[in-house]
Amino acid sequence: MKPKVAFFDFACCEGCQLQIANLEEEILGVVALVDLVEFREVLTGHAPEYDITFIEGSITRPEDEERLKDIRKRSKILIAFGACATTGGVNKIKNLRNLETVRKEVYQDDWNKPHLNTAPTKAVDEVVKVDYYLHGCPINRNEFLSVVKDLAMGKVPRIPDYPVCVECKLRENECLYDLGKTCLGPIARAGCAAICPSNKSGCEACRGTVPNPNKNAMHEVLAKRNLTVEAIIQEFTMFAVNPEVSK
């Protein structure tokens, strides 16, 4: 029996699901391995229970927490899918500021209408138990395929716990620090094949950090590049890498 697979989205751009919808030829291989039962972006079906559930997006409203808990109850394996789900992602920048201010800024005169209510952003694992993490903004298709294959074979998926520098070195890129740029590669979690540094753009740690990031050293390195404190905080803030921003 093929495992029943579902995709759900919360606060996000749905770009990670789009990565799956855009798999093209390989999508046929995926549906040969799994039974896609719920995936709003590509089909209309529903199912009461799932073997593997992918959750995209962060949790920003109390009613979303209830919906997520219900999905969790009906899922054997639950996977946080994409940066918003795994770390809170860009949405977490909101938590740096007063909620009322944020609401007024975005919704202006309508800010206080009940359907525009919002709460501090949470990553999926701040609400329910997460079995595996597929990091990235967006997720990496090859990593998704390897996780699907692993689960179909009963293997525990291997999620990289080493930094982006590893993948960057293996691609023989020029180090951005040698080109006068900055990059969070030394503390950022890999799995993306160092896609940003390979295109001469500094890593923003969209996959979060490695398990024991040396943040002090990162501060020191950035400070030596004459970055101001504000600029350093900004480097750390985009994907909730800053400890003050992340949980």
Binding site: P163, C165, V166, P213
Partner: peptide
Amino acid sequence: AEKCFSCGSCVLV
């Protein structure tokens, strides 16, 4: 080692 990222760059090159 207080400054080391354990990033592996030194050994990978």
